[in-house]
Design a binder for these strands. Structure first.
Lengths: 127, 127
DNA sequence: AAATTAATGCAACGGCGTTGCGAAAGAATA
DNA sequence: TATTCTTTCGCAACGCCGTTGCATTAATTT
């Protein structure tokens, strides 16, 4: 807990997420890094990075796992931003939208976590 | 397109969803019906029911597929209700919430579909 | 009843993600 | 630097969900 060990895998992944603004599919990471590290290593390093609140994960429509960089000081266990994730049908990119989604009050329910997944066409492809 | 064939599988499934208010995991359906039909049949019949707009599906946090009955005259291809799905951490049930979630306008984006998945504690377990 | 179309069962597969375990790498102590 | 301890890595194998191909059976059409 606290400082994360900067292993080879962690360094490579951090670098990757630093230069990537859209979310990345876990399987794509495995593929892209297959010459540098084993797939098990990728998954375990992702787990650690998520535990530390450096990245966050979510599941797409097809059940595949996406990872993206956290921007709002998330900590282990709790992620601050409840932002939607947007998947463009054209360019296939998935991005975190800098927008707050407010969930209407639901009587007698305790809300713990909210995931919003939107599909459509992004601004880049809309020209 | 149009009228769905009332095969054995479809009848059983329709009956099941009629008497079930919470969503059902696809794998649970396969398990519950394993003496009456093959797992392939279950998945294929679910596909057809969804195509006809009788049920709708969504993916949970762990990537598993859920099915629930449609209530708002959905048609093939398009499902009318953008309601959240709520998973209770205690009783593990997943229900469709009768609430509209409004997504804030996102400049230059064309929204096609929205999925909201909430976890927490439901009213039944909150006493 | 015969012919056509659609649904079913079975077995095998594909893909994502996980686990167990021995080997290697990194941190800590001296 | 040498020794010990802890964490990570690689490999192989696995578990599971959902899908596909194909031959069989059931339902619809004529």
């Amino acid at each position: 807990m606290g400082i994360i060990r900067k292993t080879k895998a962690v360094k490579i992944l951090l670098d990757l997420f630093e230069n990537e603004f859209s979310a990345i599919l876990a399987v794509d990471l495995v593929e892209r890094l297959k010459n540098e590290m084993n797939k098990t290593t990728v998954y375990r390093a992702l787990d650690r990075l998520e535990d530390e609140g450096i990245i966050h994960s979510f599941v797409g429509k097809n059940g595949l796992k996406w990872y993206a960089k956290c921007k709002n000081n998330c900590t282990s266990g709790h992620h601050n931003d409840v932002h939607p994730h947007f998947e463009c049908k054209k360019c296939k990119k998935v991005m975190c939208l800098p927008v707050e989604v407010t969930i209407p009050n639901i009587p007698n329910h305790t809300i713990d976590n909210t995931a919003v997944f939107i599909t459509g066409i992004c601004d880049n492809c809309n020209d």
